[in-house]
Design a binder for these strands. Sequence first.
DNA 1: TAATACTTGACTATTTTAGTCGGGTATATA
DNA 2: TATATACCCGACTAAAATAGTCAAGTATTA
Lengths: 140, 140
Amino acid sequence: MKLNTKSRYAVMALADMSKFPLNNPISLRDISLRQSISLFYLEQIFLKLKKNDIVKSVRGTNGGYVLRRDPKNIKLSEIFQAVDQKVKTVGCKKDSKKGCNGKSAKCITHELWDELEVYINNFFDNKKLSDLLITKERNN
Amino acid sequence: MKLNTKSRYAVMALADMSKFPLNNPISLRDISLRQSISLFYLEQIFLKLKKNDIVKSVRGTNGGYVLRRDPKNIKLSEIFQAVDQKVKTVGCKKDSKKGCNGKSAKCITHELWDELEVYINNFFDNKKLSDLLITKERNN
DNA sequence: TAATACTTGACTATTTTAGTCGGGTATATA
DNA sequence: TATATACCCGACTAAAATAGTCAAGTATTA
């Protein structure tokens, strides 16, 4: 069970943005430099964030990206769903009658994974982008 | 964020075993048939479960594997740690002074991932193998 | 002694991840 | 209006992880 870089970078980048005055565009180039994330990779990520209405873009000189809402109102779960497809724990379809590769009575553990999925999503639902900023300054 | 088959199969296989009288060996071949998991793959998995003292082996005819403890006393977290290496959310080392790829002040999100890791491990700590059996029979 | 079943390490195909790249388009400002 | 900036977008690729296979054993029991 592992977190991918896309999710991690997305949260890092948005947290980075949150530290500056909202409503003035921040370029990916700046974020790239500050967070040492590849510019090209950030472009990919922000395309998804834009499609999911988490940021909007401002093109041209002095352009960049702007948060669509106050960090207080941006759940981490939204960011994850935008960038990562989803938290996935089971292979088999959720409500298929067949379920679990066509064999019946097999998935004793099916409900467990569903529960885990809900549990994890719950974590992200209860965290806001703004929560990351309160954190005390790191001393290194 | 995804769960791998090894973890899933391990739990499925052990849950399968729990439904039979403890202390009499259950062969991987049987588990393989009942749960439709490749025998070879199960062998790999059970090697790890054995190394981690979750099961013991009985060789020879009528041999198989036996749970070392009552399912009430087997935490899912143990199974996970045995089979999967670990729940991992961060790339950077936990307590390194450098931290986060050598750049300072970068990992605003570091503590978040740590927190998530604890949160998930907590889920598995509180689930016992026996908890899976109580579940009502599935109707497909 | 034959059959069963664990033991172990090596091997492989496929998929996913992480990231790169090229050739765009829009816009502010000099 | 020219130009530099910065988003836009799809295609591509290397490397790692995953999922699974296989072969050649050893131990045990009937």
